[in-house]
Design a protein around this nucleic acid. Structure first.
Lengths: 226, 226, 226, 226
DNA sequence: GATGAATGAGCGTTCATTCAT
DNA sequence: AATGAATGAACGCTCATTCAT
């Protein structure tokens, strides 16, 4: 599905589009595999290069550093999600159903129809959950924000917020609620897998996760209406 | 206020209680200063030791590594917060008021009465917000969880959840909601400071932040009652 | 002034004459600019190629490495100087005046009549002074000497020595004195700019520099005569 | 001769005095050997560390980088030479004889009485000649000058200049002449070894070198007197 | 208990260079 | 002839850690 690749075209996270060359695609594919396996902290360009039978120097032609590579992956997710939400909700008339659909997408692994040969969707979802917040919880966040690397996240939140405002035009915190549900979906998946005492959800029970988040969202929006 | 130090006594995050020696207190004090200044990624025991006029070897007598040191600081926060919530809500009869009070504490910098000479509360709150999630978003989370290093967080959530259940005994997701509001409070502060398009809140407007989170929480709990 | 280019035609310092192509001239021009700006140590073909919007591979078609490129520039200077001395002193009958003229040329920036579009004479003189000795103060000096890359310097010294011998046929160290005054001119300019305690000369006071060197030279030659 | 070590005590070229520890002395000793063998450009801390059976990290405790290490060696030479000149000329009444003695020291390898176990004087003299100018022919010269790393050279020139002024108080360029003869001594040795066409001196004929330089110096000083 | 010295390991980066187009 | 992609090799440096005092 080549169209997916356009999500990240011309972005600031890479020096050279990895989707456009064989080596680039191997870098993406193995990055996802390796980062999922050992985590961002232990992930290095050396290990990555070794695993794909290439060299660090070659990886550096695509990405400035591992932080930018993670940003590329997370940005790909934001782009995919926004696109998916748009196409999936396009035909729906009710903003409530649109929001419901969007939360359903947020609260479950990247669906299989996003299939691209070099991207393992399940592992990417794990990375989004475990490493995602690290793309902005860094000292360079303000500088990177100016470079526009978080526009994907903002776009995603804007869409969610627009649905919320359609449901309740009086609600004042639509953007905060939008970012909250994005983070909450990911966080609760993590907690259910690793720190179950911080959640009531069972591992991989995405239906219940959606129920929790959807209830939270609709209660907040509707309560306010009154 | 020496009693505060008991929050972290005998925990698994340090090899030797830093609160009990002069060097230990200098380590804590400078850690907070330095981590706030340069961020966890750039923070090293070498820089820390240099700044306090000591050596890496000496720091290693207190903490195994920088991750454990961060855990100590975050755990101190969890302990302080739990303690603060308990003492502040003790005299309140209404669980709604208790929850309201707790969220007020979560959604603002560590109050000045927590004052301990070697801890800069404002900087510590910044660290909790910017580096906090990194204590569990690591590959070793399951192993560390077995060591009981996250009991502070769990205790905090349990208290919040108990308030929620008092308000609405039928609500099924009290723990998830509890961890959600903890994370949301911190996240929204970060967004208001660095990524304003992801929030509707103004920087340092803790009253509105509390309003947002409290509304979210109460809507969710009460809606469900019906 | 194309005739100038013949100084370096067919020499051993380049693989392909850079003066004969547009890219080659851009390489020369930017080399001078960049080497003057960042110094030989920090100068790389990558930076050079980036600055002229070309690639390292292209630069390699002209020069084997940065040392050879420096040698080309220095050799150009030696050639230009020899040529300049010859044409300027041609009509003079007194060897003393010839030497005086030659030292005047050595002890001042490359004159403007050497003007070639792609060569910034002021910057090149700075390079000669700051980086010049590095062309021979290397382990490969003996090997490179066999390749004849220093013939320009030798030719220059021979001319100076011939003037000296005309002045005083009994003087035994004409070649040593010749190379000494070449090095001294450059060295004293450097010291006047960067280490003033090692000289009595003021920065950019080329007249006094010439006075110092000319006095040194004539004293040495004439004293010996007696 | 431990007193020699005081030449470099408390200087800015090293992080930790290498003369005071066994490892430090091995670093000095092997640095001289290796730099003489392969030249400054090929010299790396890795090769040095390998040769002494230690690690780069250990070398970095003594010297910031190879440039600083070279500076240490050159500075040691300047200090030794100044000291040697002072003690050797102390009893002489004639400034002419003092200058003659000083030039004799400049124009020959470091004498054996400077013997320190970890310093090979012959190789160090070769390094001074071949690599010496590189300590100041760098972009950072002005910054380093402010740090006082060239005071040794200035002190040496001051002494030579003071002798010159005693000989001829009217001579205006004593400092320039002093730095010229220092550089010339070294340069002519290099030329005699590697580029004989630039000199009239035979390799290792230090007596003739001294004759050339002494004649140059005295002619210049005395001519001016008249 | 705290320190100073030393080290093993490996990271991030860059360089010079080659090859295919 | 000039370029773009890729690579092998090594550099400079820092980190976490250990050991002896």
């Amino acid at each position: 599905m080549l169209s997916n690749l356009t999500y990240t075209a011309n972005n600031k996270t890479c020096l050279k589009n990895p989707a456009e060359s064989d080596l680039g695609r191997r870098i993406l594919s193995e990055s996802i595999h390796l980062m999922d396996e050992i985590g961002l902290e232990q992930f290095t360009f050396r290990k990555l290069a070794n695993n794909i039978g290439s060299t660090e120097a070659s990886v550096y032609r695509y990405f400035e550093n591992k932080h930018k590579l993670l940003l590329y992956l997370v940005d790909w997710y934001w782009g995919w999600l926004e696109n998916k939400i748009m196409t999936t909700t396009h035909h729906l008339s009710s903003p409530y159903h649109k929001l419901d659909t969007a939360i359903g997408l947020l609260a479950s692994p990247i669906s299989i129809d996003a299939s691209i040969a070099h991207i393992d969707e399940t592992k990417l979802y794990t990375i989004i959950i475990s490493e995602g917040p690290k793309v902005y919880l860094v000292k360079g966040v303000d500088k990177e924000n100016l470079d526009g690397v978080y526009t994907g996240y903002k776009g995603l939140c804007n869409i969610l917020a627009s649905f919320m405002i359609s449901i309740n035009p009086m609600y004042k915190y639509a953007h905060s609620l939008a970012s909250t549900i994005v983070e909450t979906c990911h966080n609760q998946v993590f907690f259910s897998q690793h720190l179950p005492r911080l959640t009531d959800l069972e591992q991989e029970d995405y239906a219940t996760l959606k129920d929790f988040v959807m209830h939270l969202t609709s209660s907040t929006l509707l309560q306010n209406k009154i």
